[in-house]
Design a protein around this nucleic acid. Sequence first.
DNA 1: AATTTGACCCGTC
DNA 2: AGACGGGCCAAAT
Length: 112
Amino acid sequence: MSAKSPEDRILAAIRAIPHGQVAGYGEVAHRAGLPGRARLTARILGQNDDPALPWHRVLRSDGRIAFPEGSKAFHEQSQRLRAEGVKVENGRVKRPRKADDLDAALWGPGSR
DNA sequence: AATTTGACCCGTC
DNA sequence: AGACGGGCCAAAT
């Protein structure tokens, strides 16, 4: 029997974020079946040890990066997001519209 | 054991 | 857009 703990669900929800897309902490928590536990998601992300975990796809609700501007993690996350076709401007992330998504699919990674 | 802190969120001003 | 207050939970002090 699978007695999944909240952590496992949160991690699963984060891993479920598709390439080129982003989700908020609360969104991930809600998706994991834990509404209102956004802080739990944050804590788990800080404790996670999985390098394969797309932590860079997790942002605040405002679409802002959770790290202080100028921080190394901040820069890394923004760069990683850009590499996936997500527009990042001044620490703010713009959700890819259809046109942008198509553009990213054509000119983004994997395409030549 | 109580208080503070933390990769947060929401409603309201 | 930014500021305030309240809520949430677990680890750290």
